[in-house]
Design a protein around this nucleic acid. Sequence first.
DNA 1: ATCTTTGCAAACTTTTTGCACCAAT
DNA 2: ATTGGTGCAAAAAGTTTGCAAAGAT
Lengths: 147, 147
Amino acid sequence: MDEVAALLHRRGERMTRPREAVITALAARSGHVSVEDVLRDVSRLDPRVHRASVYRTLEALSAAAIVQHVHLGHGGTVYHIREQDEDHLYVQCRDCRLIIDVPRAQLDAMGEILRRHYDFELHPTHVALSGLCGRCRARRATGPSGS
Amino acid sequence: MDEVAALLHRRGERMTRPREAVITALAARSGHVSVEDVLRDVSRLDPRVHRASVYRTLEALSAAAIVQHVHLGHGGTVYHIREQDEDHLYVQCRDCRLIIDVPRAQLDAMGEILRRHYDFELHPTHVALSGLCGRCRARRATGPSGS
DNA sequence: ATCTTTGCAAACTTTTTGCACCAAT
DNA sequence: ATTGGTGCAAAAAGTTTGCAAAGAT
């Protein structure tokens, strides 16, 4: 928390109650937190904090590179505290919404192709890829009658 | 258009004026059309068509697999008429929003890794990857002072 | 004639903004 | 004392819904 405060101060910004609450909320969950989750958790942590402050705080913390967001195909955007070695990408199951972190090394083949053939530099952490996890694939094979 | 009508009829559904307008709007643009674009184009093509009908039509056409959507990291969701050989994925520049279609073959390395190591079947057309195209990377290097 | 789809209006959800006040530095 | 940030309330954006009427088959 002090680290975060220092980062903010370096930018001429301040550590405040709403910001503490947002950071606490993000830290409490392992990662992949939706705005909705943040709003709910923050208002539990400190009911005085207003929605608008949560939105503004997420924006400020993003600008300061303290938090990062990942767009999911469905289900909007999730936030998490940025780690120094943010070297994985996200893959999400389109059925159960499970998110899997994949080491960035795995993406290098793709990144290399994009760079070479398309002069395009991939930022693999920004958007989650979509697909089907094994469990949901099995469930679909069995048929939705199974439920 | 008749093809689409046939597909709808096969599902016990009907071809109507709003649906024609939406399909015309989607066909007129090469692809990657936002709801906003569809709404605007449709109301030009036929001002009697209501917004709500556009939303409902996009949903119906999606359900019938006549149109498909792609989630972009920023800028929401874009629609396009589904092609039989939908074998490319999308990559989008985070600065200029340019969308590049990449042949699916290029993604096979990644797809293979996900399948083998994570038991995850990638649906690569559903979400656009994000990154920086060459032009924007150059512009950033020059510095935003260049504009 | 039947039954799907439409237009409309209103509701809803989510996010943003203007502004006076509060509070971190 | 500064001036960045907050809470509030209202507006803005984007999407959905109930319903009576219209229209495709």
